[in-house]
Design a protein around this nucleic acid. Structure first.
Lengths: 307, 307
DNA sequence: TAGCTGTTATGCGCTTTTGCATAAGGGAGC
DNA sequence: GCTCCCTTATGCAAAAGCGCATAACAGCTA
């Protein structure tokens, strides 16, 4: 139909140069040579009739026009990687690569033992775990399976609601012994409260949920895992998922009757992967394990020590 | 990072062969020769360690393993085409290609005059219009702008609700003169009712909305445009969007008090295109025009004759 | 059965592209 | 200022890929 004179390899060259910032680095990345990539970029610019980079002795930097093309080139790369993943094993084997994306907390604190158990059962299974609180990935094939705290409302995506996770304020018993336990919300202003830094999504959620102010926080980080580490290091009072907190007896609820809310957990995969055995097996395993995690609720549990 | 021995051009060759069913046809499509594509498929199969096609004197047909890779290759192609679209004009020009997807009715009966007016204002603007009732396209870059009847609830997608379109039963006055006007719902069983054929989404919606049965329909088509044409040809009683029906005075409401429901209209575009002038201009134009369409409601209007 | 049209597979010559080697330019540290 | 390390650009030879021509096979029609 539309015969297209420009080679797809030129797009890959474009992406590699844009991401590395130089022909030489890009050549190292994709296993080619600097003159080759230079000529491919030349050819692409000629074919598109558009200047993509400004060249300098320090490397190449994207022009505005080139910047506009970057997301699409990334989309191509994501699809290419997904294709390689699909080809990494036969559809009937529980082997090959499965790429999972999850929120920081779930991916960093909940999934590792779950994945470990899964891999123990299936020695040929390779798992890639991407921690990000964005979630724009399934349709673009950035991942095969997504664990999300919002309903994935996309067509062509199979979503299963796992359950509802209660959240609350917690603190380490050592912290409470040192600084005392707040009895009212107002007491919090005299404590070290752990919270986000600049995360706009968190800011919006906070504003809606309560009249809290970011200035309340005496320790601020946009890394949920850093916040959790601070909490476990007896560094202050912070929000934690109840099933997670229940795994560490030294974490004690703070103002449990005054502060409590919840998040839904969703598991999602792409429709096309339904008949792919390794994705399906991973999906089902995650569903069972996350269901068990949710059911922990606030009960203490002896299992799963997490460094 | 991951050095990748397989050329992206091989993926394009794979896609073309899979979609056309033969090396020769694929070669014609993408402007290469049959021996070249044959060797590229060979190389790809060797690189993936996977048989993609079964070769026969009648052509090549996908194996199961090859079938699994097809969606990802299509994703690459969609991204490549989107990239070309982005490069088709400078970001400051209102020129180049904009690809719009819409439902059959909106795309086939509402948008053409709207697009015509837009193109009259911007001579350099090329519009591609894709009519489909599926809507899995924005994130995968199958289109730049989507007009949808459901809320596009995806991240990285900018959505604007245009309004609410009332729907009702209509018939041509010639039909009513010939067959009479039904006075009750029960009367419909003696009439020629126009409805869907096998569309599972429509079947589900019908089941929820009312106790209607597909057997009521004496003319069945899953093409909404064919249904509309039947309606305008005085062929029976069918559902129509009120603003659309109001443009043709010969269409008369049937049982307006007994049968009425509505659809929301949403306009959506990808976040990355926000600063792209031609997409932005098209988006805004569609927003205004569709708003005017919705506001027509049931008022007759003299404007816009549609063949 | 003969002939036509479609297909894939293969040998060969040539064009294209690649990689190597090198030149040339800019910045950091001494 | 000098050296070292990074970069891009270019000349040239070799290799890889491409297209042309052709062979071989299957299905359809007369």
């Amino acid at each position: 139909m539309t015969r297209n004179a420009v080679s797809w390899d030129h797009y890959r060259a474009f992406l590699a140069v844009a991401e590395t910032g130089s022909l030489s680095a890009a050549a190292r990345q994709i296993g080619q040579t600097q003159p080759t990539l230079g000529r491919q970029i030349d050819a692409l610019e000629r074919a598109l009739g558009l200047s993509l980079f400004v060249r300098s002795p320090a490397g190449l930097t994207l022009t505005e026009g080139g910047h506009d093309l970057l997301p699409d080139a990334q989309g191509m790369a994501a699809a290419a990687e997904a294709l390689l993943r699909s080809a990494s094993a036969g559809r009937d084997e529980t082997a090959g690569v499965v790429r999972i994306t999850a929120s920081e907390i779930v991916g960093g604190a909940v999934l590792p033992p779950v994945v470990a158990a899964l891999q123990a059962q299936h020695p040929g299974l390779v798992v890639e775990l991407v921690l990000t609180n964005r979630s724009e990935d399934l349709l673009r094939r950035d991942a095969d399976i997504a664990v999300r705290m919002v309903r994935p409302d996309q067509n062509a995506v199979i979503a299963r609601q796992i359950g509802r996770v209660p959240l609350g304020l917690y603190a380490h018993e050592a912290y409470l012994a040192r600084c005392g336990s707040p009895q009212t919300l107002a007491d919090l202003s005299t404590h070290t409260v752990i919270g986000f830094d600049r995360n706009p999504a968190a800011a919006r959620a906070l504003e809606v949920g309560s009249g809290w102010d970011r200035r309340l926080f005496r320790f601020r980080s946009d890394s949920d895992l850093a916040q959790l580490a601070m909490l476990r290091a007896a560094g202050g009072i912070g929000v934690c998922q109840a099933p997670l907190a229940s795994q560490w007896p030294e974490l004690r609820p703070v103002l449990p009757d005054l502060v409590s809310f919840h998040l839904d957990i969703w598991l999602a995969m792409h429709e096309d992967q339904r008949r792919n055995r390794r994705v399906r097996v991973t999906f089902d395993h995650l569903a069972v394990a996350l269901r068990a995690y949710v059911d922990l609720k606030t009960l203490p549990s002896a299992s799963g020590s997490l460094e």
